[in-house]
Computed example of a mutant assay.
Amino acid sequence: QVSTCLLVKQLPFSVTKDRLKKTFMKSVSARIVLNPETKISRGFGFVEFENEKDATDAMNAMQGRDLDGRKMVISAALKK
């Protein structure tokens, strides 16, 4: 069961969900948010983790890291 989700902003428009998932090795899934009309990335996405520790470790390790020329901005996603 997925318990923790991170919001990843400042993504290059070329990044796919598979690439995002591989970037965050302990993630269980990733999703890129697309413009509904053009189907082009809006530059942010979500990465889900099984537990809060993995998510926190990933956020601390990856905050500000370069991904294809853009520095990622990461925060905890709000739960619905």
Rank of each mutant, 00 (worst) to 15 (best):
E37A: 09
R42K: 10
T56S: 13
K26M: 10
V33T: 13
I74W: 01
F13R: 10
T4W: 11
L20D: 01
K9E: 14
K17H: 15
D18F: 12
P12Y: 04
F49R: 03
K53S: 12
L6R: 06
R70T: 10
L67P: 00
I32S: 04
V47H: 02
K9P: 01
R19N: 06
M62N: 15
L67K: 03
A30R: 01
A77M: 06
L11C: 09
K17L: 05
T56D: 13
F49V: 05
S3E: 12
K21L: 07
S14H: 07
G64E: 04
E37V: 11
P12G: 03
S14I: 10
G69F: 03
A76F: 14
F44T: 05
M62W: 07
T4H: 12
D68R: 08
K79F: 12
S75P: 01
K79V: 15
L20S: 02
E48W: 04
N51L: 05
K9F: 09
K9I: 00
D66L: 11
T38D: 00
P36A: 05
G45F: 15
S14K: 11
R19G: 12
Q10I: 04
I32L: 00
G64R: 05
C5K: 12
D57R: 08
V8C: 01
M59T: 00
T16G: 05
K26H: 07
K39M: 13
N51I: 07
D18C: 07
G64P: 00
R65N: 15
K79W: 11
E52R: 10
